[in-house]
Design a protein around this nucleic acid. Sequence first.
DNA 1: TATGAATGAGCATTCATTCAT
DNA 2: CATGAATGAATGCTCATTCAT
Lengths: 204, 204, 204, 204
Amino acid sequence: MATEEKVLSTPMKRGEKSRRKLLSAARKLFVERGYHDTRPQDISREAGVGHGTFYLHFADKRECFVSFVDEAQVELQREVERYSHDVDGFEERLRAVFEAVLKYAVANPGVLTAAMADPDLIGSPSGKHIPIVDRWVANWKAFFDVSKENGRIDPTIDTAVLACAIVGQLNALCIFAQKTGASADRIIDTLARAFLNGITPQQD
Amino acid sequence: MATEEKVLSTPMKRGEKSRRKLLSAARKLFVERGYHDTRPQDISREAGVGHGTFYLHFADKRECFVSFVDEAQVELQREVERYSHDVDGFEERLRAVFEAVLKYAVANPGVLTAAMADPDLIGSPSGKHIPIVDRWVANWKAFFDVSKENGRIDPTIDTAVLACAIVGQLNALCIFAQKTGASADRIIDTLARAFLNGITPQQD
Amino acid sequence: MATEEKVLSTPMKRGEKSRRKLLSAARKLFVERGYHDTRPQDISREAGVGHGTFYLHFADKRECFVSFVDEAQVELQREVERYSHDVDGFEERLRAVFEAVLKYAVANPGVLTAAMADPDLIGSPSGKHIPIVDRWVANWKAFFDVSKENGRIDPTIDTAVLACAIVGQLNALCIFAQKTGASADRIIDTLARAFLNGITPQQD
Amino acid sequence: MATEEKVLSTPMKRGEKSRRKLLSAARKLFVERGYHDTRPQDISREAGVGHGTFYLHFADKRECFVSFVDEAQVELQREVERYSHDVDGFEERLRAVFEAVLKYAVANPGVLTAAMADPDLIGSPSGKHIPIVDRWVANWKAFFDVSKENGRIDPTIDTAVLACAIVGQLNALCIFAQKTGASADRIIDTLARAFLNGITPQQD
DNA sequence: TATGAATGAGCATTCATTCAT
DNA sequence: CATGAATGAATGCTCATTCAT
């Protein structure tokens, strides 16, 4: 029977396939041309569906962008968990997260940058921005707070500042990695050392 | 006497005054609403001049934005020089620059953020972006290279990565400072310590 | 029945109807007000479609004008062929073409004139002009060349000059016919006689 | 005395010089770029005067164009009179006028064409057009009427049609001469023969 | 008389969104 | 669910004309 067969071969609702194609096309175009130079029509054409179909799956262009961001967010989170899964120790975990983020950035060029670029007003006080950055900052802060309690972090350090700084760093370095083609490992080395021990020469 | 005063204080060409008003209005609106939500007409109205006057001074909207960025760039540079003018020593200079940037960011909320947000495509590989970020990264790298030669920086550190990271940090922290209202001094303390000595507890 | 009739008489794609309405409106307005005094918006309104629909069918205003010219060209060509279809003899053919052109001009007042008026630069050396005139001149020249070989035209006559002159004449007379309301037949009489035998009195 | 000196050296009002420069610039630009692509500002710049000066001499852009047309008209008239001054006989006079017009057209490329191209609506029934064409047609008609009375023209010929046709021919041939670089003499030969004797072979 | 900065209505064109099919 | 023609408010920009200097 047709329905059953469909369910067996592709266990997704009829429309789900269009949605996937649209999201995939959206990711490609948002990354390549940016939010403002990408029209819903472009996305639909790239996805190979009719223009009207776009609005069957997204209330508007912005919601499509948010979906793209969410997808990237989930993917990155998965990577972070994969890299830091069975890693113990503060420094090792830190390094593992750096690795997850940078390798994801290299493997998905432009995605993180595009996802963090608010289409309307980046980092503006208007509060309209997509809270992906805030979420990440919050995650880092929580991690640092725990580490601070465990004595792994200098108690005079302000963890909120630290969390914010590290997100800024990673964001900048993702662009850097992609632009210069520098190996993720090399970046991670410098970043981890500087972050953990500072940039002044080590005297031991 | 009015005429005399005018001549003495601002011997300004007729058109220069409009340009100032336009740039000032542009700064206000680009910061408040972002590039894409600011129409040349809005800028003109805010400046109190006719719509056509805008195009007497800027070839197009983008050139106006670039002028705004240049202005901010010059102002910030001036602050950095003022703060680090007669400061000796690596750590002191570093701290002075942090101070200059963060205090400028607090005094001019949103300006640096808006100036670094490329209207068309942020950090994209398309190369269309306004190179303010690249310039800053280059400046920092030069500074770190010298410091490295002088033995003030761990020789295994990659200065390009470092320069990029610090710009990312400062950018993020400017937003943070403005959003949370955290005192610049508090941020600088954490930032400088982390940067110089790392975030791990100091054992002396 | 309406549906059936539609299918039978005009099995027209959805968009084709708009295009027809737009072209028809464009013809009316280009003729009445000229290219420069006709806005795409006027054409859309006259056609009873939205402003944006115009750009669904024409890349820009100029392409719309070119389409209008092409349409007129095709119509006129059809008339010329109809009139000269089963006409033999040089003089008879010439007269038939005169008749076709002038009657078309009278039946479609202003169309030929508007179509020959290049919107950007009439007859200029810049080469931007719409080559309808060139095409007509070329057609006439070919006709005269054949007639010359057949001994129907004075061999000392330069057919290129002749072709150009006749197009100029016809163009001017189309305007004349329309403006003065002179009967096409009367014009054709004088024109044919002058062209064939010259304007000097016939002595036989 | 200053005034007297001025009068002696340049017997023209102060402003007359600007006017000349403007008209000369206008002619150049109207011919090169056409009416609609020539801004008053372009004319002023080309003339080397301030933009405001334009409106000191012309009420508006259109009046400037009309002045340009008038100037060309006067020049051409002078040429026609020069060529046909002491010429007797109908055919000789006709030929002389052809010569005057075509040689003027070759010597002043584009001027006649630009002058006859009504900026607003060429040959339209709206009546807005500059009446240079009408004037010429009227002149020709008067000439033909006299010639007809003198028995130099076939009495069955409609002189109004003839006058219109000849203006159309000349206009087209001016463009032709300029575009193909054909010698004026060659054109005149064909034109005069066709006009006087018709294009059919002469049997004598 | 001369200037050129200023004006703002007007233009061609775009694009997020809707809706009849 | 899917389509793509249709929409019209909105945009960036131009340009004939004015007017304070």
